[in-house]
Design a protein around this nucleic acid. Structure first.
Lengths: 236, 236
DNA sequence: ACCTGAACACCGTTCAAGT
DNA sequence: ACCTGAACACCGTTCAAGT
């Protein structure tokens, strides 16, 4: 009977509140701030109370990823397959920019959750509705890979904190690695849209994405098939 | 004076032995088997003894990555830039296939070690020697991204243990996600070179790599520049 | 029957005590 | 001066004791 007062003092914990709290904790303090103990403290409960809603930490992270994936905009049925896929991937990228820690969590997973599977399914559906064969769609998924989720595939992703590389650093780099310094320095001559970074990340993302999408479109127009005699994949 | 007997009983620990032991431990038992405590035990020393050779665990992992990166074959100067880059990346991929845990370790790093910087430098040198502009080389590095290191960018990389997806699983998947099931099923009709996996990972890797390299070659031939009026990146 | 605090088996690293 | 064992501050999860 005394348990009844708990209802008045505090909302019962539920899975939704656990997950959205975990997302906001990660947004504010990074993924390393999500431990069962710290999250429980944030929720004002004992650590073991979380185990009423998730079986273990892995299941918690699955749920957290699902929250992020659900933020990705659904496909626009009025677009042709190429702009539709492009818009979808850019929406996924936007979601990951809001939750930069989510990429690492997703990469640590070995199998997709049903929510992620739904996302993949609807993305495949865009290709198929656009007339691409099952075969080419299969290879397209491999070629796009985790870019489907909006992942960038830069050499070093974690330089989000740093702004442009200071000139002194490039000067020093030039003494040992001149080519690298020259390429790094070419960033600062692009004043197009630079905000915090020395590089226009959005431009580079779209540049790489368009190379792949254009290559796939070319193969599609050629009626390319993997069982046909092998030539250079995207030439002709 | 009694310390002298230590020399007879056991070789003095040195950094090289620490790193090569760490690599073989990871090869045999996975990256989670590398902890300062377990590694020390494997070497027959007390955990704190490792701190004579590395400042902390991060520095240990840096050294371990360096061992793997040094296994990548140097560029072949007799080849044109495209086949040279292609061969280099395939050599990097081969190194990662021997040390599958290395990818995750490299991704956890925020900045490159000098050894990794040497690798990047020599790869950039291939592009420049082939006549690509600094500008295009810059974008090429972004477009290839971590593929430079031989990283695959599949949706799920950790399915190395599993063989082909069993037909029953595809049947079940088909009920909820028909497109995904069809695409997954298209794997089993490629009997080209399948060894353990249901998919020809080498083919898919080269397929995606060639799309990017062919796109870059096309832009190079067009004299493409990022400062020129923007069109679809790789079309024309 | 339910909840939960203590405990377990780890981890990287600090630090002071012992030689 | 050097080495190193105990200790610290964590972690995810188990489990039995208490209500």
């Amino acid at each position: 009977m005394t348990g009844r007062t708990k209802v008045d003092q505090r909302e019962y914990l539920n899975l939704g509140r656990v997950l959205t709290t975990a997302v906001s904790v990660a947004d504010e303090a990074g993924i390393e701030a999500i431990s069962m103990r710290k999250l429980a403290q944030k929720l004002g409960v004992v650590p073991m109370a979380l185990y009423k809603h998730v079986a273990n930490k892995e299941q918690l992270l699955d749920g957290v990823v699902d929250v992020v994936v659900r933020e990705i905009a659904p496909p626009d049925p009025t677009l042709d397959w190429k702009p539709a896929v492009r818009a979808r991937i850019l929406s996924a990228r936007a979601a990951l920019l809001r939750h930069p820690w989510a990429r690492r969590v997703m990469e640590s997973k070995a199998t997709p959750t049903p929510v992620v599977l739904d996302y993949i399914e609807s993305t495949i559906a865009i290709f198929r509705a656009g007339g691409l064969s099952v075969d080419l769609t299969h290879h397209a998924l491999h070629a796009l890979g985790s870019r489907i989720f909006g992942f960038t595939q830069e050499l070093y992703n974690d330089s989000q904190n740093a702004g442009p590389i200071p000139p002194e650093a490039i000067q020093m780099l030039a003494q040992t690695h001149p080519h690298s310094a020259a390429v790094a320095d070419s960033r600062r001559h692009q004043q197009s849209s630079v905000v915090g970074s020395g590089c226009d990340d959005q431009f580079e993302f779209e540049f790489a994405l368009d190379i792949v999408l254009d290559g796939l479109e070319r193969l599609h127009r050629q009626g390319w098939s993997s069982s046909a005699p092998r030539t250079s994949a995207a030439s002709g």
